[in-house]
């Protein structure tokens, strides 16, 4: 387990030293600027616009970070052979993979927390009240990022960075439209098509479970039951992915 912690720490450091702090700062500045520009146009809805815009933007940015940085994280180690010296230490390959996952997830979660804090700060300063409900949406977004990180780690355990990014993006998009897929699959198609789409539906990550960003903007709080369900679903989903990824990576041949 100490191996996992060491690898996770190193991964956080690696990601952070890739000018990620800069992205965060730029985002904050951009948001402040945007909120000043947009709020007069929103006919008194400025507060909602800024919050909505901020939350959606934050989660998109964090998703991008995970997919873009995550897809090459493992491959870079194999390509540059930094992994050789690490794997000669008393650590399992699956622990290495888990460390990478934790490091990336922690970084993404920190990014989300930072950006949501900026949104809260901007809204508080501009409108004199703090939309605390946003914190429920944040917890769900962090869980969502865990699932997305696991998806990226899963694909990167056996394919190239480009394919990992592609498959991960496709899975994320499909995961957001899983319900539509089920609906179209059941519309008059052959029974086997319906069954196949249903199987795919259950396998896809149901990312809408984690999206309460729109709801909190309109003052609807995230219910504790929803949070509990999302946490259970998210953690089970990401653990299943990591177990498979670990098994693949254990068997993989290093060049």
């Amino acid at each position: 387990m100490r191996g996992v912690v060491a690898i996770a720490q190193n991964t956080v450091r690696e990601v952070i030293r890739q000018r990620m702090v800069l992205v965060l700062a730029l985002f904050g500045v951009g948001l402040v600027a945007a909120s000043q520009v947009l709020s007069p146009l929103a006919l008194g809805e400025g507060r909602k616009v800024v919050t909505d815009f901020g939350l959606a933007g934050s989660s998109l940015l964090a998703t991008l970070l995970v997919v873009v940085l995550g897809s090459s994280l493992l491959h870079k180690e194999l390509e540059r052979r930094t992994i050789y010296a690490v794997m000669a230490k008393p650590i399992r390959r699956s622990e290495f993979l888990l460390g990478k996952f934790c490091g990336l997830w922690i970084t993404a979660a920190a990014l989300i927390a930072g950006m949501f804090a900026i949104v809260l700060g901007v809204v508080t300063v501009s409108y004199g009240e703090t939309p605390w409900l946003v914190l429920g949406a944040m917890a769900l977004t962090v869980l969502e990022l865990g699932v997305i990180t696991a998806i990226v780690v899963f694909f990167s355990s056996f394919t190239t960075p480009a394919l990992t990014a592609f498959f991960a993006a496709a899975t994320i998009v499909a995961g957001n439209f899983a319900d539509d897929l089920l609906y179209f699959g059941s519309q008059g198609a052959a029974p086997w098509v319906a069954r196949a789409t249903e199987a795919v539906y259950w396998m896809l990550p149901h990312l809408t479970v984690f999206n309460a960003r729109g709801a909190v903007v309109h003052g609807i709080a995230v219910a504790p039951e929803r949070l509990a369900f999302a946490a259970a679903y998210g953690l089970l989903y990401l653990m299943a992915l990591l177990i498979v990824a670990g098994a693949i990576f254990e068997r993989r041949e290093f060049r």
Binding site: E14, A85, A88
Partner: peptide, 16 residues
């Protein structure tokens, strides 16, 4: 591997 030291050929370590 707990009491083993290994130097890879043309080693490469974390740049960061």
């Amino acid at each position: 591997r707990s009491k083993l030291g290994y130097l890879p050929e043309n080693p490469c370590f974390y740049d960061h």
